[in-house]
């Protein structure tokens, strides 16, 4: 799904949370949106999926204006996973929670059961299928939320800090799954995070600061711009710091070392 924001502004009260934002996201891509707490990342995500309405400007999905009428068509094509896994667990059990979205989509029962198993297996939660949310850890609830969103097989998937509670292996697995579905099914994926490590698997990284885009480029371009990252309240990566420091010293194998460090940075 192609996304275009044309001069979009939004505010909850008086203060602008998103101000005059222009942004285009191509279909079949992974975009990472990074920014400090309160920079407006979640708000932007909610605007794109139509949970919030822009105060000013227009949002286009697949070249069609997003409004109260068109949202009905787009609703089933977009999935979003929120920050707090507890507040989006609708079902009384894991199985019922995955089923919730599928039921809304009017999927037939047999297909539904098949999908529930398929996606729970994908996130490694199949053995918890009958469990109630009270008995799950935060990370396990996030896995269920991810399975629930994936099971909808949407064209656009937004992950709003939805891997924050996962262990390293879980984060890696989810990353691989995301890459796989992007390549195989031409999905558009937006990853929201303030962790640069998670942004590594993106094709493009956008830095948000106080509701404005302050940097937009490939992960390599964004990561090497230390000033922007620091000014936006983000932590630079250790390896990138070394790469930047390397620029100030004379060393004959500088080029090779830099290349090797970049390679290591993106190796997961």
């Amino acid at each position: 799904m192609k996304i275009k924001l044309d001069n979009v502004s939004f505010s909850y009260n008086e203060e602008k949370v998103i101000s005059n934002l222009n942004l285009e996201i191509e279909s079949s891509s992974i975009t990472a949106i990074i920014g400090h707490n309160g920079s407006g990342k979640s708000t932007l995500a909610k605007l794109i999926v139509g949970l919030l309405e822009p105060k000013k400007g227009t949002i286009y999905l697949d070249d069609q204006v997003l409004n109260e009428d068109s949202i009905k068509i787009f609703r089933n094509k977009m999935g979003i996973i929120f920050q707090n896994p507890d507040n989006q667990f609708v079902g009384v059990t894991v199985k019922d929670d995955i089923a919730f979205g599928l039921e809304n989509k009017n999927i037939e029962r047999e297909e539904m059961i098949q999908k529930i198993h398929k996606y729970l297996k994908l996130v490694g939660m199949e053995e918890y299928i009958e469990e109630s949310p009270e008995n799950l850890s935060g990370g396990q609830k996030q896995r269920v939320a991810i399975a629930g969103a994936l099971s909808m097989e949407c064209e656009l998937l937004i992950l709003d800090e939805s891997t924050s509670m996962l262990d390293p292996l879980g984060t890696k697995e989810v990353g691989e799954t995301i890459k796989k579905i992007k390549n195989e099914d031409n999905k558009t994926i937006i990853i929201i995070t303030h962790d640069l490590e998670e942004a590594r698997l993106a094709d493009r990284v956008i830095v948000l600061n106080k509701g404005k885009i302050v940097k937009d480029g490939t992960p390599k371009e964004v990561f090497s711009d230390e000033n922007i990252l620091i000014n936006s309240g983000l932590k630079t990566m250790d390896s990138v710091k070394i790469i930047n420091d390397l620029k100030n010293v004379d060393y004959k194998n500088k080029k090779e070392i830099e290349a090797a460090l970049w390679e290591l940075t993106f190796k997961m």
Partner: peptide
């Protein structure tokens, strides 16, 4: 949050839905 999550997952009150159980 819950209302947002439910809306994002395509729940429309009163609309026809299939059933797992």
């Amino acid at each position: 949050d819950l209302a947002d999550a439910m809306e994002a997952r395509g729940y429309i009150p009163g609309e026809r839905r299939t059933k797992l159980n």
